[in-house]
């Protein structure tokens, strides 16, 4: 009974979060549009990069870039989720939820479910885009399924970071201001270019950047095939980001509830 009631709360909150994103073009568009545009420019402008000595064996530069675009997209899911949460805080919706007899876990799960759903949208969009423009997923259907799982998990992990930011700052404009930072972290990873061919000092940073692990985890099924090694690395990267996000969220939420 309690479980069913909780499930209904989770579903309702999740639905609201998804609608929040889909009803506002200024939220949804950046998530899909900007990574798609960057993908287009990257493949068009740097497409010949595959000829550089040392570039990994790939069918095309688009195949290589897809993972980066998906990763960027999930990061934007996290930022926009953070903006939505900050707006909820600004208009007092969060207080209403906290005041309601809803378990904290239901609140968190509702938002996570919505984020995962957006992750599925992201994966669908970019896999379709890739296939239309001639990329190939080497690992086939199983590879596509794996991409969906990794992208959804990655969206949830960044959703946690976005939520932490929103809970700590409590203002949408601050969360929005973090936007450029998304690119810094991303550019300092192997999301868009092989780590070995990047310039120093970025190449060294990319080596320790968990985003490199996630990108390479998503990329492996596209350009090579399913391998336990890269899958585990990808999951590890997601776990690092997600763990950080949820720990910070918990801290920020506790502080917010204590200080009112």
């Amino acid at each position: 009974m309690r479980l069913a009631a909780n499930a209904r709360v989770v579903a309702a909150l999740g639905r609201r979060s998804v609608k929040q994103t889909f009803r506002r073009p200024q939220f949804l568009a950046p998530i899909l549009l900007f990574p798609s545009l960057l993908l287009a420019v990257n493949t068009g402008g740097a497409g010949r990069a595959t000829e550089i000595p040392g570039f990994p064996e790939v069918a095309g530069f688009l195949d290589f870039e897809l993972a980066g675009a998906m990763l960027q997209s999930t990061m934007l899911v996290g930022v926009s989720g953070g903006i939505a949460l900050a707006l909820d805080i600004e208009i007092g919706f969060l207080d209403r939820l906290v005041a309601a007899p809803i378990s904290r876990s239901a609140m968190v799960l509702g938002r996570l479910a919505a984020t995962a759903a957006l992750g599925v949208v992201v994966a669908t969009w970019f896999v379709a885009l890739g296939l239309v423009f001639g990329a190939r997923v080497e690992a086939g259907v199983a590879g596509v399924a794996l991409i969906f799982v990794l992208v959804s998990l990655s969206a949830m992990a960044f959703g946690g970071l976005g939520a932490a930011l929103a809970l700590a700052a409590g203002r949408a404009s601050v969360v929005q201001g973090i936007f450029p930072l998304v690119f810094v972290i991303l550019f300092l990873s192997s999301a868009f270019f092989p780590r070995e061919l990047m310039l120093e000092p970025a190449a060294t940073v990319a080596l320790y950047n968990p985003l490199s692990l996630i990108a390479e985890g998503i990329r492996a099924p596209v350009i090579a095939g399913i391998s336990a090694g890269s899958l585990l690395e990808g999951l590890f990267g997601i776990a690092v980001v997600g763990g950080l996000g949820f720990a910070l969220s918990a801290l920020a939420l506790r502080r917010r509830l204590r200080t009112g």
Partner: peptide
């Protein structure tokens, strides 16, 4: 604080692009 993102974004882009695609000059 409002000026900071728009002030820094192009610089971040520059550093990122140079780091990632700097080796294109070898083509």
């Amino acid at each position: 604080g409002a000026a900071i993102p728009s002030l820094l974004a192009p610089t971040i882009f520059l550093l990122g692009f140079v780091s990632m695609f700097g080796n294109l000059t070898e083509l």
